[in-house]
Design a binder for these strands. Structure first.
Lengths: 243, 243
DNA sequence: GCCGATTTGTCCGTATGTATC
DNA sequence: CGATACATACGGACAAATCGG
């Protein structure tokens, strides 16, 4: 539940746009009108609108107004730019999620592992392999490395449900940001086995590796997500910034 | 040249962070200090800092301060979240770009094409196939569809250089935002031929399809970029937003 | 082409809330 | 508890772009 006023205004406008209260390409009411509607200050309203811009819902044009450019097609995918757990994105798209824990271990990071995980060699971590199903189809094979110190008490049972829910609700950790790199990699035998694909077909995977930070500034998670290529679909809205 | 003060402050701080004026995990000077440094208002400074947050350069923590979390490794790739031409990103990463125009035609959009391009059937467009080389290696095969009405006077010569430069500098068009979807697709014979890869190796491509809008709100470009998988690398910083 | 009204963009100063130490 | 630091919000001022008369 967001307490900030601009969050509520943002959500209200967003919901109105999604509900086609404004038609595609139509101008929204002017700032002054909306200020009266929500009886808030100009700054607060502008802040809400700027979120809609980064979401790709509207375009602002100086001297003209704010245009609705929302088209529902594109939104129905993994949305990047925000951090969302597997369960959250499944729920958002109306799918049935299931998570199978293939491996749950803990060990100390080796020299070699420290290079790609970013954890210093010797630090204790949980290493978890999980297979994510969507509507009973295995789609994503996840390799999670969690800093043990920052994520105490993690169990296989928690991993079967939502680790993020545990972090946020039980440990009261605040996840702040995540740096991700998307690549395409060769499929391994492990991928093949779990995702039930044969190499005659696709021989690659969409791979998303991420380093995630909490509000204490510690990088507590390194994850490699290996996605079945034919179901992989990432959406983003990019904004041209001044040079 | 950005005229806005917050742009300059943002750039100055960004440059300082990149130059390691602040060490990793170190706190930046407080807002009040920075306000005095730049002799600006609180709002202006906060706006600059918030750009650094979305760039993944810093983390803000209420009650504590602003922490530097910049690590240069990740930044040296295609950066998503912003719109950048091929030449711009090549220059940013210190590479030598070259563009070969394989095909330059114009025609009216068919019913079938209108489904994926988003242009209404019957509209006149330029269809261009271009091969982008980086340091003499063919990496990206681009299929561009430009709305003829919005991009008059496009020639093969312009396409060999920078179309975006033509749009912005000659036509004075303002590119605003771009909705993109990233997928992994099977490699075609055309891909194979131009990117000089054999199917025994990778049989997939990283594909980025984009719909790009200008400041008049018209979707003037549909592009499918087919990237050689072993050189494809997209970077992003995602921020956890309140639910 | 000019002028004034409208609309968004930038900036400032101030007040209050909330988290950290 | 008080001091410090970031978060939210308000109101006002001027600039820049657009549009209609």
């Amino acid at each position: 539940m967001p307490k900030a006023r601009y969050e509520n205004i943002y959500k209200d406008l967003k919901q109105k746009i999604e509900a086609n209260v404004f038609t595609y390409q139509e101008l929204l009411p002017s700032e002054n009108t909306l200020i009266q509607t929500y009886s808030c200050s100009r700054n607060t309203l502008r802040r809400a609108v700027s979120r809609l811009v980064t979401d790709g819902y509207v375009q602002t044009m100086q001297g003209k107004g704010v245009r609705n450019i929302y088209q529902p097609i594109a939104q129905a995918a993994f949305t990047i730019g925000e951090i969302e757990s597997f369960r959250e994105s499944a729920a958002r798209n109306g799918h049935h999620p299931l998570t199978e824990v293939l491996l749950f271990t803990e060990f100390a990071v080796s020299e070699k592992q420290s290079l790609y995980t970013g954890f210093p060699a010797g630090t204790d971590i949980y290493y978890i392999q999980r297979l994510h199903y969507l509507d009973d189809m295995p789609l994503i094979l996840n390799h999670n490395y969690f800093l043990k110190e920052a994520v105490p008490g993690l169990t296989k049972e928690i991993a079967e449900n939502s680790i993020y829910q545990y972090l946020e609700n039980t440990l009261h950790m605040t996840i702040v940001n995540s740096k991700r790199i998307m690549t395409v990699e060769k499929m391994t035998e492990i991928d093949e086995k779990h995702l039930m694909m044969n190499a005659q077909d696709y021989n690659c995977m969409a791979v998303v590796t991420s380093h995630t930070y909490n509000s204490d500034g510690v990088m507590f998670e390194y994850t490699q997500s290996r996605h079945r290529p034919d179901y992989f679909r990432f959406y983003e809205n990019a904004v041209r910034k001044p040079t």
